[in-house]
């Protein structure tokens, strides 16, 4: 499986993503510059974390207008796999590829720590290697990760089983104290209705090597590679 990792000015998790993917059997990854317009030959797209365009205006607001995003949209519309991590999740929401938005953390602080998240649905190409309710230890690092959607959108996300991961405590309980940023319903990551686009604030690419303290992010990449 050949991954394209999109690079915007200000992306800073792009190298982590490429390194992680290239270390996985059956996967390879290449950088694609945001001014490029072709994704020919790629099987999946990763929009990595960072601070695209310095987070000017709103996180992800300017990246949405980069030339490559038109190609990402048509790639996604034809059912292609798109994974947005952290700033990538923000860009997907700003682009309208995922519902809702990410706003300033409730506590106002940038939060950088290991966090447990619970797999809410294994019915996706991103989570099919997990078990329902599985708890994963994956780092988070963001200042604007508070997921917001209105009541109608939240109801639709729940009804369509689009909430793939929620913040939880070590026992898997989704409590207020285990919610690091004030996200509605402890939402850490969602997919679109057709289940081929996934955005999440935690960084699975930073949890794929024992040297980094956790390998539990592998679940997401293993899911993608599992055919």
């Amino acid at each position: 499986m050949k991954f394209a990792v999109i690079r915007f000015p200000g992306s800073n998790c792009d190298q982590d993503c490429v390194l992680t993917l290239n270390n996985l059997p059956g996967a390879s990854a290449e950088f694609v510059w945001h001014k490029d317009t072709s994704l020919a030959g790629f099987d999946a797209i990763v929009i990595p974390g960072g601070f695209s365009y310095g987070d000017y205006l709103r996180c992800g607001a300017i990246a949405r207008f980069s030339p490559i995003m038109q190609t990402v949209k048509s790639f996604a519309a034809s059912g292609g796999t798109v994974l947005g991590i952290c700033n990538g999740f923000q860009i997907l929401c700003e682009s309208g590829l995922l519902p809702g938005a990410l706003v300033r953390n409730k506590g106002l602080h940038f939060v950088c720590k290991h966090q447990t998240i619970r797999v809410e649905s294994t019915n996706s190409r991103f989570t099919r290697a997990a078990t329902n309710g599985q708890v994963l230890n994956i780092p988070i690092a963001h200042g604007e990760g508070c997921y917001f959607a209105d009541d109608a959108t939240l109801a639709a996300l729940n009804a369509n089983d689009q909430i793939l991961v929620r913040y939880c405590d070590a026992q898997g309980q989704t409590t207020d104290t285990s919610n690091p940023n004030g996200s509605r319903e402890n939402i850490a990551g969602i997919c679109n209705e057709t289940r081929n686009i996934f955005g999440l604030m935690p960084h699975p690419e930073r949890a794929c090597d024992p040297a980094l303290g956790s390998t539990e992010g592998l679940m997401i990449f293993d899911s993608l590679l599992k055919c």
């Binding site: 706003v103 300033r104 953390n105 409730k106 506590g107 106002l108 508070c146 917001f148 209105d150 004030g182």
Partner: peptide
Amino acid sequence: LPKPSVLDPQGAAA
């Protein structure tokens, strides 16, 4: 301005 239904922690802090 943030919509009234959106949490505005900066506003609350101010």
